[in-house]
C-alpha cells in the first residue's frame, strides 16, 4: 500500500528547460566564460553555440533549434554600439524580432525567443539573463515540439548542422 502510494506519487521526470544560447564570441561568450571562471552559479539549463558575431545568426538557425526540440532560444550579443563588426548585433535584433513573428505564426509562444545584450565584462548579467530565461520557460512549460528524450547534444547538433550548411 505504502509502496504503491510512493509509486503513484512519484513525480514525473522534473522539467529541466533546454535553452539554446546563440552568442557572440566577443561579448556574451567572454562574459559566460568569466561567470564560469568566477564560479558564479546559475541553472544548468543553457547550452551555448558560439558565433563570431550575432550578425551571422540566421533565422533558420533559430527555427531549426525549435524544430530539434529546444524549449527556448536566446540570442545574446554585444551592447548596442559596441559590436566588433559595427552593427551585427543590431541586425541580429531585427532578425530575432522577425523570427518571433514567424514562430508566433506557427503557434509557438514568441516569448520562447529573446535577444539580450551582455557586455564582455558583465558576467553577473549573463547569470541574470540565464535565470530570467529559465524562469520564463519554467512558467511556459516544455515546448509543444519538445521531443521526448531529445538531449541538449541533439538540439545543439541540429543547429551546428544548419550553421555548417
Amino acid at each position: 500500500m505504502e509502496a504503491s502510494k510512493v509509486i503513484s506519487a512519484a513525480p514525473e521526470a522534473e522539467f529541466v528547460p533546454k535553452i539554446l544560447a546563440l552568442v557572440c564570441t566577443y561579448c556574451t561568450y567572454t562574459a559566460a566564460d568569466m561567470a564560469g571562471s568566477a564560479r558564479m552559479q546559475y541553472p544548468p539549463t543553457v547550452r551555448i553555440v558560439k558565433y563570431l558575431c550575432t550578425g551571422r545568426i540566421d533565422i533558420l538557425h533559430i527555427l531549426k533549434a525549435f524544430e530539434a526540440g529546444a524549449d527556448a532560444v536566446m540570442v545574446s550579443g554585444c551592447e548596442a554600439g559596441s559590436c566588433h563588426f559595427l552593427e551585427g548585433n543590431l541586425r541580429a535584433r531585427e532578425r530575432v524580432e522577425y523570427a518571433k513573428k514567424l514562430i508566433a505564426e506557427v503557434g509557438l509562444e514568441p516569448e520562447r525567443l529573446e535577444m539580450f545584450e551582455v557586455a564582455a565584462s558583465d558576467a553577473p548579467k549573463w547569470v541574470q539573463v540565464v535565470r530570467e530565461m529559465t524562469e520564463r520557460v519554467e512558467k511556459l512549460g516544455p515546448s509543444p515540439l519538445h521531443r521526448v528524450g531529445a538531449s541538449f547534444a541533439q538540439v545543439e547538433a541540429a543547429v551546428q548542422r544548419v550553421v555548417a550548411q
Binding site: 533565422i59 533558420l60 527555427l63 531549426k64 525549435f66 524544430e67 514567424l102 514562430i103 505564426e105 506557427v106 503557434g107 509557438l108 509543444p144 515540439l145
Partner: peptide, 17 residues
C-alpha cells in the same frame, strides 16, 4: 532559396505541432 528554407521550417514546425 533562403525564404524557401524559412517557409519549409515554419511549415515543418506547424505540422509537428
Amino acid at each position: 532559396e533562403k525564404e524557401v528554407g524559412l517557409l519549409a521550417a515554419q511549415l515543418k514546425l506547424a505540422r509537428n505541432l
